[in-house]
């Protein structure tokens, strides 16, 4: 179990996308932060980040419609913050300042409020990442069954492909198929080291990933579990 989930801070405060993809680790700056915030002063040439005025911020129409649909579902519109950020992330790949400003504009919140929310959650990316998400679970149950080697293997296979966002992830709730990974939201496992080239190849080609190992096709192991018809 040599891999940490969030350790090995980068040696300098200057972290690049390449290192991110290459290590497979959640990128950490010195001090353990995921974003280069700790050591940064503000930019005094910028204006304060107030609620963006719709008169001056362009929001793509589909994104606005999606966010407004989410807002309509809740007694308090603010509840839509996470779904709205997810929607913006799908469009922008990560929660870029532009993406956050667009959400802020529609939801009538400050971008600060939203970045506080976005940076709290592991699935919302506050620094640039690749489009394809490969979350390798490296929590206890998976690592007991070889998850750390799997992560290394995936990282190696992906290489410096900027389209990938390979991360070790905390327990994904699929220890029955350990070691496992969530590949663009599709759970697959147990993933053998030999499966990795096929898996990454399938992601690259847009094919279904490891169809036989997808969790949705798995039957219960409980001998008493029934399918009585």
């Amino acid at each position: 179990m040599s891999h940490g989930t969030q350790e090995e801070p980068a040696p300098t405060g200057d972290l690049t996308l390449g290192q991110h993809v290459g290590s497979g680790e959640v990128p950490r700056y010195q001090g353990g932060s995921r974003t280069p915030g700790w050591d940064d002063a503000v930019d005094l040439t910028k204006d304060p980040a107030v609620i963006p005025d719709p008169a001056t911020v362009h929001v793509p129409e589909e994104l606005r419609a999606e966010i407004e649909a989410h807002m309509a579902k809740y007694p308090d519109e603010r509840s839509a913050a996470i779904p709205a950020l997810m929607a913006a992330q799908r469009r922008h790949v990560w929660c870029s300042p532009e993406a956050i400003e667009q959400v802020a504009c529609v939801m009538r919140l400050t971008p600060g409020y939203l970045v506080a929310v976005a940076s709290f959650y592991d699935m919302l990316e506050t620094s640039p990442v690749g489009r394809h998400r490969v979350y390798v679970c490296t929590n206890i149950s998976c690592s007991l069954r070889g998850a750390d080697a799997l992560l290394e293997r995936v990282v190696e296979e992906v290489g410096d492909d900027p389209d990938f966002n390979v991360r070790s992830f905390e327990c994904l709730g699929a220890c029955d198929i350990a070691p496992m990974a969530s590949v663009d939201d599709v759970y697959v496992g147990p993933v053998e080291l030999d499966d990795v080239p096929a898996l990454i190849g399938q992601v690259r080609s847009g094919a279904e990933v490891l169809p036989e190992k997808q969790i949705l096709r798995r039957k219960s192991v409980d001998p008493n579990a029934g399918s009585t018809s």
């Binding site: 039957k219 219960s220 409980d222 008493n224 579990a225 029934g226 399918s227 009585t228 018809s229």
Partner: peptide, 14 residues
């Protein structure tokens, strides 16, 4: 022991 309640029909197709 046939104790299945929640899992009684769990693998029922559809």
């Amino acid at each position: 022991m046939s104790s299945a309640i929640l899992f009684k029909d769990i693998d029922e197709p559809g």
